[in-house]
Simulated scan of single mutants.
Amino acid sequence: MLKNFFTVSLQKHMIPLKNYNYVCKRLAGHSKWANIKHTKGLKDAQRGKMFTKLGQQIKVAIQEGGSPNPAYNARLQQVISQCKRVNMPVATIESVIKSTQKDKTQYKQQVLEIRGPGGCIILCEVLTPNLTKTRNDIATIIKKHLSKYSDGGQHLFEHKGIIEAQLPLQKENVTNEGILEIATNDAVECEAEDVKLLEETKTLQFLCDPIMFMQVQKKLEDLNYTIVMASVEYIPKLQVALSDSDLELCSNLFEKLENIDEVIKLHDNIA
């Protein structure tokens, strides 16, 4: 899986690094599980549900950041950037912000740990005004899929900001080695921890601390990079291989969980 990637170490530039080789595997998308999730994602294509979940995140960002103005609320700025990347209409974003100022419902965000089929770990991010009810709703579903709540699984993941970006147009004809050299220098300037190149598309993947996520993204944009995708993810340190029957069970479980409005995102350590 790693042959499609070039990994660049930034240690010589005095930036502390951990071993992120597992990230290459994780983001390559060539495993059977990755293909199952990709296919389901294309099949479902529920833009309305996605917008609903993003709208909830806007509400929490305003609650936690204390301001409906993204200029004074970094968390809100981050969510709005996500909204724009999935082509959520500006009018819809503004409508959610206005309605939030009238809605006094208090939402809470939490990561629920689930031990899934075959011993895999699933991290379920939820955003809800009633955590007890949401936990109970999810408990009913996971029990039917040979799964249960667990503790201690979160330490098996790295929490990282992942930013996929393309080089500025004037640099597109540079060789792969040249792209890596440019990206390495830019990663140092942007204070990213690591950068990797997907050879086929020349898309660069920058890794950073979640706290630095918006800052790294902004600096890349200032350097004229085109941001393709940006999100904060839980990346597994080790992955678990599942049987075909367990993969099918996980696929059904993910579909049920994603249909719950309060579920924002799912992460797993399935190979």
Rank of each mutant, 00 (worst) to 15 (best):
G161P: 04
M229Y: 08
L253N: 05
S245R: 13
H145S: 15
K25L: 09
I260Y: 06
N176Q: 06
L220H: 00
F51A: 14
K18M: 15
L17S: 14
T201L: 02
A192Q: 01
G65M: 09
I211A: 11
K40H: 13
V23K: 00
P129Q: 10
Q56T: 14
L2D: 14
I122G: 07
Y20M: 06
A271R: 03
S243I: 14
M229P: 02
V232N: 09
Q154R: 11
L112N: 07
I114D: 04
E164S: 06
Q63H: 01
G161I: 01
E262K: 09
K160F: 07
Q239A: 14
A241H: 15
V90Y: 03
G119Q: 01
Q110L: 10
S150Y: 08
K265H: 15
A45L: 12
R115P: 10
P129S: 11
L249F: 09
L27S: 04
L197A: 03
Y107C: 07
A34F: 13
S95D: 09
C190P: 02
G65P: 11
L242R: 08
L27R: 02
K43T: 15
Q57M: 07
V126A: 06
K12W: 15
S67R: 13
A74E: 15
A271F: 12
N130L: 02
A34M: 08
V240D: 04
T39N: 13
I141V: 09
F157T: 03
I15W: 09
N185D: 10
V86Y: 08
L242W: 12
T201E: 03
A230W: 01
N176D: 06
L266C: 12
D244T: 11
K59R: 12
Q166G: 03
L204E: 00
K108Q: 10
L253P: 10
T184D: 09
T92P: 04
T203M: 02
F6E: 15
V126M: 05
T203I: 04
N269T: 09
C124F: 08
C124N: 10
T134C: 08
A230Y: 00
L198D: 07
D186F: 01
E199I: 05
Q46A: 14
K265G: 10
G116A: 04
K108A: 10
F5P: 04
N224T: 00
V188M: 07
R26C: 05
R85K: 07
E199Q: 04
G118A: 12
N136G: 11
N87E: 06
H38E: 15
V126Q: 02
K143D: 09
Q239S: 14
V86A: 05
T39P: 08
L220Y: 00
E199D: 02
Y107F: 09
G153R: 02
Q77C: 12
I15A: 05
D268R: 06
L123P: 00
A271Y: 12
S150F: 05
T39W: 15
E191F: 02
M14W: 14
V79A: 02
A230F: 03
V195N: 00
Q82R: 11
Q170W: 02
D186V: 00
V263K: 09
S243F: 14
P210N: 05
C250L: 10
V86C: 05
I15N: 04
T128Y: 00
Q106M: 04
K148C: 13
V60L: 08
K144I: 11
Y225C: 02
R47A: 15
T226N: 06
T52W: 10
I264T: 12
